[in-house]
């Protein structure tokens, strides 16, 4: 039963939709989060307060509510238009119901919420880099932005990547929430199937297996990414689990061969 549905076309389509949603929402979250983090650290109080307000709002309300909000915002403002202020001509206008599709609502709900968390993660990473690093860069004639991009962020990465990995894994699972607005991701796909055949538990297990598989793949990716950004911090990188396993096996092999050498 489980094996039968694990590779069913509808389940796989749902899986792809889940992966898409995760990737796009995380991309929005990271890009916007980076912007918010930099804004928060800006010497301009207006800019940093704007960033603080964003994080306060989006971190302070449930993501579930935010998804429902974006889905229903079309009902509140049926027409969206982009035009010049004070009665100027309208440049663009569209029906909000066609503009904010289920997909857009899902992306907005997940991505904008994620940005608030990523902003805090990135800000903590930036603050962890000692001030001497920025000073050295400034003294060499680098601007604030160049210093951030070339000197501070690469070092902050070491602290940013582990929680970002966690966020990605968490996002993968949070995407299941958008089944509530009938977006056909993995969970909604299996729901559609068990609504018909009543094989609820086996199909939930099918979905869970896929979530576990993707989570595992992401964890391995995270491990190698973390390793890459540890360059320069440790004198020598620790061997990967695979290298350790190979060494262990080779060492075991050598021990077996030793008596032969004595002969």
């Amino acid at each position: 039963m489980i094996g039968h549905y694990l590779l069913a076309a509808r389940v796989l389509r749902g899986l792809v939709a889940t992966l898409e949603l995760t990737a796009i929402s995380m991309a929005i979250g990271i890009a916007l989060g980076l912007m918010l983090a930099v804004m928060r650290l800006s010497p301009n109080p207006l800019v940093s307060t704007a960033s603080w307000l964003y994080v306060w709002l989006f971190r302070g309300t449930p993501v579930y509510v935010q998804i429902l909000f974006w889905y229903n915002v079309a009902a509140l403002y049926p027409r969206l238009s982009l035009g010049l202020p004070f009665g100027g001509p309208q440049l663009l206008h569209a029906n909000a119901n066609t503009l904010i599709t289920v997909f857009a609502a899902a992306i907005l709900g997940l991505g904008l919420n994620e940005a608030a968390y990523m902003a805090e993660i990135i800000r903590a990473g930036i603050l962890s880099v000692s001030e001497g690093q920025s000073e050295a860069a400034y003294a060499l004639g680098m601007t604030r932005l160049k210093t951030l991009r070339r000197i501070v962020l690469p070092q902050a990465m070491r602290l940013i990547i582990p929680p970002t990995g966690n966020e990605t894994i968490s996002m993968l699972k949070t995407t299941s929430l958008v089944s509530v607005i009938a977006y056909t991701e993995l969970l909604y796909s299996v729901q559609e199937i068990y609504d018909v055949n009543y094989e609820t538990i086996p199909l939930l297990i099918v979905a869970s297996i896929w979530y576990l598989v993707i989570t595992s793949v992401l964890s391995v990716g995270q491990y190698y990414l973390e390793r890459r950004f540890r360059r320069g911090a440790a004198r020598q990188l620790a061997p990967t689990p695979l290298e350790r396993l190979r060494r262990f096996l080779l060492a075991g092999h050598a021990q077996v061969e030793m008596p032969a050498e004595r002969r």
Binding site: G132, Q133, A136, A139, I151, Q155, F229, G232, A233
Partner: peptide, 13 residues
């Protein structure tokens, strides 16, 4: 203007 710091502040990465 070149500057050399007490704690070197080399870029470790």
């Amino acid at each position: 203007i070149g500057m050399v710091f007490q704690h070197f502040n080399l870029f470790p990465h």
